[in-house]
Design a binder for these strands. Structure first.
Lengths: 204, 204
DNA sequence: GCAATAGTTAAACAACTGTTTAAAACAATT
DNA sequence: AATTGTTTTAAACAGTTGTTTAACTATTGC
């Protein structure tokens, strides 16, 4: 069901799908070409190399992920509500795109420096750290949050609790005998739980 | 610095190192042979195939990881103390073996069914679920823990909060400008924080 | 209409990989 | 000392992969 007939877009969509599912090393240019309903040479014609194509997808993915959080942060609402919103946003998103966490994990193992640099770039482009960091510091200074609380702290906890259960989906389902419906319920039910957990952990 | 001269052990050690660092697909038999200070044919002579060698390492890794948790669980101490012990154990272990989380993640993407089956097998071998599950249910029934709390819930939270920060080590260090010492401090400082967070989240 | 550019195709190339082979070296047993 | 089974080596094999080539077609600009 490929609506876009532009070959460049078709290849991008195919590459995204294959890279997400298999990671860089296991994905092949021939497979991407077939998925895009074209041939091998076309993929190289439009995107020069596998590495280049991969990093376009990689960049796109990070932009999307950080865009979500940037939107939540710039809203004029209490910080607790921001945290809850980010968690809901991420859980919902990863449920629809369950391959993204493992895609990124795979790239961390393959090329940590490159992905770290990309991440840093994207973080400074959106001013997440600044806008959120100031608000947190204010809460710390006012004695509302515990003294050691930082942006890093909160972000790691949010990502840990949202990303990991998606990453380990196959293991959870098999080891605990959950059907897909039960797994979905489990993840969705965690949204409020995680939010409360994190908010409680930062309040003094 | 290879102390063991037994070629089989030498190949195992080499394979463990290479597989941990690069994952199944990116690791090559030639690289393992070189690392083991022997040649290609020897690796196949002792281990038949790459797939087989990989699953020996895989099995060994899961046995080790679940062994740790099994030990903590069977101690005759309050359940809160058990949770704290597991967290400390895992954080310390992953700090020494930072490649294991990404190694397992890589295998989840490559062959989810196989790793899920292996995990299930190992879980039922150690009687984690049983021994821990009973104790949790007792706390729930006595009104000490919240009604919805299960083994799965607690385990996912423990693993999420311990594994993810290790998995994303390169990104954390780069994006937040942390030196290795600062990163280590950050992770080590989280041990108590995580313990409190999880225990608070399950108590009624 | 025509030349130049862009798009498309099938085939070839070169490098790499897991696995196998066949012969040599070694060890132990008879 | 000869034989047997095991270990080690170097080479070959067959398949896959990313990339390039060269020929062909379609499109565009003049």
């Amino acid at each position: 069901m490929e609506l876009n007939t532009d070959p460049e877009k078709k290849i991008m969509n195919a590459a995204r799908k294959i890279f997400y599912e298999k990671g860089f090393k296991s994905a092949t240019m021939r497979e991407i070409a077939t998925e895009a309903d074209t041939n091998l040479a076309m993929v190289n014609y439009y995107f020069r190399s596998k590495e280049n194509l991969f990093y376009i997808i990689n960049d796109e993915t990070f932009t999307m992920l950080l865009g979500k959080v940037a939107l939540c942060i710039q809203e004029d609402i209490p910080i607790e509500q921001k945290i809850t919103n980010i968690i809901h946003e991420y859980v919902d998103f990863f449920m629809i795109n369950p391959h993204i966490p493992s895609f990124i994990s795979g790239e961390i193992i393959r090329n940590p420096q490159k992905i770290a640099t990309l991440m840093k770039e994207k973080i400074s482009q959106s001013n997440i750290h600044k806008a959120f960091g100031i608000q947190i510091k204010k809460h710390v200074d006012e004695g509302i949050f515990k003294p050691h609380i930082t942006t890093l702290n909160i972000f790691i906890n949010i990502l840990s609790l949202t990303v990991f259960p998606i990453l380990s989906q196959p293991i959870i389902k098999e080891a605990f005998n959950l059907s897909s419906e039960e797994y979905n319920e489990f993840i969705m039910g965690r949204k409020e739980e995680i939010s409360q957990m994190i908010i409680n952990s930062i309040k003094v």
